[in-house]
């Protein structure tokens, strides 16, 4: 552990403030609880909200997994995992099934989550209405009275213009039939995993100073229209490494002649499948 700093970096008073915010977030699913976000030793926009949430919940018997883009070996995931290994001395893992806390940026693991696990999402912009209404004073009122008309209009305009809803990631959802929520920039491929998931999902936005939550077994519905039901991305191909056909695939450019291949974005899931096949 790093000398001079508290366990998991944050001081106890800050943890208490964040813990109270987390409990209220769980009590009001999908509602963004304002909190006194602190400056962290990592830049805003690089996971400070997720780090503060993780730092406030983590204990010495936890096992932490950190992913970015679904992969454990991306540089920012490594940096955050090291931060907690250093400041909290906790065990870390790349295996989804072994983790008690999973901090993530932009993905939900392919391996189904189990009861008792906590997923901590890093959130850049927590407000689902922000692109449509830049003013916090306005959007707060819209949430207060569940007035989400502008979002429905926006999606409807997409359909009129493109023939389908053009949002592909950070696709808005309604939590427990009340609050409109941004699931953070996960691809819409991951949205169905939010619904009735046995794990607790916590969302931290450091720069924007908001915490919100989806408790386990909570109804989470992606917005859609009866004649244009929600659908997820599909690929005509399978993972070049493990052969998966029902996982989110990243396109990798292999040469400068237009050569490319598709591989799983979830590096742990992919490695495990290869292991089993071998």
């Amino acid at each position: 552990m790093t000398a001079g700093y508290n366990f998991a970096y944050l001081d106890e008073q800050t943890k208490r403030m964040i813990r109270r915010a987390i409990l209220k977030a769980v009590a009001i699913p999908g509602y963004q609880v304002p909190f006194g976000s602190r400056e962290m030793p990592l830049p805003y926009g690089w996971g400070t909200g997720g780090i503060q949430v993780t730092a406030s919940i983590i204990g010495s018997d936890d096992v932490l997994k950190v992913i970015d883009q679904g992969a454990d070996d991306t540089t920012n995931a490594i940096s955050i995992r090291r931060f907690f290994a250093k400041t909290a001395g906790v065990a870390t893992t790349t295996r989804t099934a072994d983790a008690t806390i999973i901090q993530t940026r932009h993905r939900i693991p392919e391996t189904p989550l189990r009861a008792g696990q906590i997923v901590v999402f890093q959130v850049p912009i927590p407000e689902p209405l922000r692109w449509l209404e830049p003013r916090e004073s306005e959007t707060r009122q819209m949430h207060a009275y569940a007035d989400y008309a502008i979002m429905h209009v926006k999606l409807y305009e997409d359909i009129a213009r493109y023939g389908h809803i053009a949002t592909t990631y950070d696709y808005p959802v309604i939590v427990n039939e009340r609050y409109l929520m941004r699931p953070s920039p996960i691809p819409k491929f991951d949205n169905p995993k939010l619904d009735m998931n046995p794990a607790l999902m916590l969302f931290g936005a450091g720069r924007e100073k908001r915490i919100y939550a989806v408790p386990p077994y909570t109804i989470v519905k992606s917005l859609d229209f009866e004649d244009h039901p929600f659908s997820i991305e599909t690929w005509d191909t399978s993972c070049a490494l493990c052969g998966a056909t029902n996982a989110f695939l990243d396109e990798v450019i292999t040469d400068d002649h237009g050569g490319k291949m598709f591989v799983c974005s979830d590096s742990d899931h992919c490695a495990e499948r290869k292991e089993k096949a071998a």
């Binding site: 830049p43 883009q69 920012n76 932009h106 850049p124 695939l249």
Partner: peptide, 18 residues
């Protein structure tokens, strides 16, 4: 500064969806 520069982080999953 943090948020402008966070664009340097990988965004390839969202970009794939786009």
């Amino acid at each position: 500064s943090g948020f402008v520069q966070h664009l340097k982080l990988p965004h390839y999953v969202d970009f794939q969806s786009e």
